[in-house]
């Protein structure tokens, strides 16, 4: 009886040892597109959880207690930085009590470090709306920023899991090659529309517009985070007519009424886009996400021209 008991304990010990030896690296990403990149680099050696839902407004995410558990068990936290997560991440990290993912440790990665940040305000004034003090946080909408983030994630994975470093580096190389090919294809597709003037709902698309040479002339929001006002709409409609703006880009989660009204008045077309990987079934990774987005925009512009 006693031997059996000891055997059982031994087995338990062996199982627990082997299970930790082959345990995947647990990564928590604040947004699904950061998560998608981590998945590209880590593949089956990592388990990735994203906090924000791909379909929701990433500025307002609930700090659900289940994420505390996820962060508690995480080996790595990928934070976008640039204050997109300021309203929900800090309490989760405090609750998680996990040394690994605290700032300054190898498990905490700020994805925006190394990104050429756009729209960094020179002064702060909330009368100008909810301006992000560190610059526009929607940097993942430029595929070449995805490359920078991928490199950072690869470096960090190598640091945290040196045994699989070559594997991660190969994945990175592969990902970058695929992305580069795609990027030139996308740029070829959008090239005929270089400089096309567009209107967006929120300042979500500056990185995207810059990469693909679109020109965002106005936002439906008068100021970041402030819903469209009648006065502002009355200003936008003639402006769009004058400038010949034929495209309005809005995020999935936005109300449709005002954009559609403006479109009807100006003859523009509203294109509803996912802004994060996974927002739609056909955008389940970083590359298909841009495939879908570029296709939508190009076909909308083609139909108009």
């Amino acid at each position: 009886m006693k031997i059996k008991y000891q055997l059982f304990l031994f087995l338990l010990f062996v199982i627990s040892c082997t299970s930790t030896a082959y345990a995947k690296l647990h990564i928590v990403a604040t947004t699904p597109d950061l998560g998608a990149i981590a998945r590209e680099i880590g593949k089956d050696k990592v388990e990735v959880t994203s906090i924000a839902k791909p379909t929701e407004d990433p500025h307002f995410v609930d700090a659900k207690p289940s994420f505390i558990v996820k962060l508690n068990k995480a080996d790595m936290l990928i934070d976008g930085g640039l204050h997109l997560e300021i309203g929900w991440l800090p309490n989760l990290v405090t609750g998680a009590r996990n040394q690994k993912i605290l700032p300054g440790n190898s498990g905490y990665l700020v994805a925006s470090a190394g990104i050429p940040v756009l729209e960094t305000p020179t002064s702060l004034d909330r009368a100008m709306g909810d301006v992000h003090p560190l610059g526009n946080p929607h940097f993942m909408l430029d595929p070449s920023n995805g490359k920078i983030v991928a490199t950072q994630i690869c470096n960090r994975l190598c640091q945290n899991d040196a045994a699989n470093c070559d594997y991660y580096k190969d994945n990175l190389k592969d990902f970058v090659t695929r992305l580069d090919q795609k990027l030139s294809a996308w740029q070829k597709m959008t090239e005929p529309f270089r400089g096309t003037k567009i209107v967006t709902y929120h300042k979500t698309f500056p990185y995207f517009a810059k990469r693909f040479n679109l020109n965002v002339v106005e936002t439906l929001e008068p100021k970041p985070g402030i819903p469209p006002s009648p006065a502002h709409i009355n200003h936008i409609i003639p402006m769009m007519k004058n400038e010949g703006v034929k495209l309005i880009l809005i995020e999935q989660f936005r109300e449709r009424k005002i954009p559609e009204f403006v479109a009807a008045q100006t003859g523009a077309k509203v294109v509803i886009l996912p802004i994060m990987v996974g927002g739609l079934k056909e955008t389940d990774d970083y590359l298909t996400f841009f495939d879908y987005t570029i296709n939508q925009i190009v076909s909308a512009l083609n139909a108009k021209s």
Binding site: G81, P103, Y108, V110, S112, A113, G114, V117, T120, N155
Partner: peptide
């Protein structure tokens, strides 16, 4: 570069 890429500091925009 490698050092910088793995540096855990958040982006500090020094203008």
């Amino acid at each position: 570069q490698q050092k910088v890429a793995v540096a855990p500091q958040p982006a500090s925009p020094e203008t």
